[in-house]
Nucleic acid binder design. Structure first.
Length: 189
DNA sequence: AGCGGGATTTTCT
DNA sequence: GAAAATCCCGCTT
């Protein structure tokens, strides 16, 4: 496991695959909460379903910035979702984190979610609540506290499944969703 | 097990 | 003014 995030400078599809198995380390009130990324979706500028499709706006400018930063957006009037910015500066691309597996600090996450088991983090808005991620972390540098991304090249290629994306109305059929085979926290099979 | 609706606010047309 | 990268609850089969 390393703190070198250079792999995020690749295109979003490559980065989405490489992010599987990586750890997120979140500090909440002096406690460390750790999770493993088990499901991702790639978004880039040529994708009608991407927030960056129509060019840079006040909301999406983070996606056009350097790789390794967090892009948080608010949706459906009540939920946050978080993305990891990828590719070069000037390219509007990011990877949506759709599901994570709790590793450490499970008590804290159960409390924040008021749920247990897979209901802690088997969906994009759920894991944001479990990690206490909101708009104040939009644009956060993932190499520093209170939210760090740690690279972990632990998932063999044959355990990575590629499929169509979820929860969008445009460009549904594109194969841009990646998840770890048989992991119980994956949001949907 | 599966369907349908409500919550609720930011963003862009 | 409508749609949105979602989730949860309650009702029906």
């Amino acid at each position: 496991m390393t703190n070198n995030l250079d792999f995020l400078k690749n295109d979003s599809l490559t980065a989405a695959s490489d992010l599987l198995g990586c750890y997120l380390e979140r500090e909440i009130d002096g406690n460390i909460v750790t999770v493993k990324i088990v499901e991702t979706e790639a978004y880039d500028q040529n994708d009608a379903a991407s927030h960056s499709f129509k060019g840079q706006t006040e909301r999406t400018k983070i996606m056009f910035g350097p790789a390794g930063y967090l892009y948080v957006y608010f949706t459906y009037g009540m939920h946050y979702c978080c993305n990891i910015v990828t590719d070069k500066v000037g390219v509007g691309s990011a990877v949506l984190i759709r599901a994570v597996e709790p590793i450490n600090g499970i008590d804290m996450m159960e409390k924040l979610r008021r749920r247990q088991g897979i209901e802690i983090s088997n969906g994009p808005a759920k894991l944001c609540e479990a990690l206490n991620i909101d708009k104040t972390l939009n644009g956060h540098d993932l190499s520093v506290s209170p939210l760090k991304l740690l690279y972990n090249q632990s998932i063999p290629k044959e355990d990575i499944v590629i499929s169509t994306r979820i929860g969008i109305s445009k460009a549904k059929d594109e194969l841009k969703r990646f998840y770890i085979k048989d992991n119980p926290y994956v949001s949907r099979v």
